[in-house]
Amino acid sequence: MNRRIAVLVFPGTNSEGETLRLLRDLGADAQLVHWSRPQELAAYGAYVLPGGFAYEDRIRAGAIAAHDHLMDAVIDGCAKGKLVLGICNGAQILLEAGLVPGTAAARRPTAAFTHNAPQPHFICRHVYVKLASAPMRSAITASLDEGALIPAWAAHAQGRLAAGPEHLAELVEGAHVAFVYAHPDGRVDEQAVPNGSALGCAGLVNREGNVLALMPHPERDAWNVNHLQRRVGEALFAPSGGAVLFESFVRAVQRA
């Protein structure tokens, strides 16, 4: 099977470095693929869309990138069951491309991650996300524990899930809400949500479970060195914390 992972770089992507580094530290065969080389993508078995400001968030975050040639290959690969993980701007692009929740045609979005509320500003805050669907709901989360609590950084101006009432209902009924915001002790309530997101949603999965879109960045709290409360004697660059989600993704790719 094709275990090679492509980390997509759109103009304006800014988190490709740490995303690639984490995938490789977890044993993945991963490469960056730039926007000027979309033809290379078909040769990869899985895709990761990292954070940033692709096409400077024109119109709406992810809206232009969803129509980039890079996404032709991702849409095609998604239909073939390839695994796709989008973080932050990558998540926004996956929603704009209609791959998540994937209840309509490609590039016909039914939901969006849009401007934060009540304050529309960019917010950078440490958060926890909690696995809200059964681990086996998605191949990408299959190695996580039930209700897994994962540390991450919210860093976005457009992270609020918004959709019409019928589409929100669809998300709930189809168990598309993969992650919700939570307190450090795992409690889930409105105070834990940094951006006014509908359903307290931090991440969505598509119907088939092969595409996951997550707003906060687990890869920015993914090595011991990133944790303020680390214990003395731990290897500084051993993956930990937020790395579990990526680990689960890499395992799924290697299983596939």
């Binding site: 800014n14 988190s15 470095g17 740490e18 580094r21 984490l22 954070g51 500003h121 960019f122 917010i123 950078c124 805050r125 950084w153 860093a155 960045h217 890869e219 920015r220 709290d221 993914a222 090595w223 060195v225 990133n226 303020l228």
Partner: peptide
């Protein structure tokens, strides 16, 4: 003020 700044991009932030 600083919550409007990305303080952790690049994944290298320790403090």
């Amino acid at each position: 003020l600083y919550r409007r700044y990305d303080r952790v991009v690049r994944g290298a932030t320790v403090i």
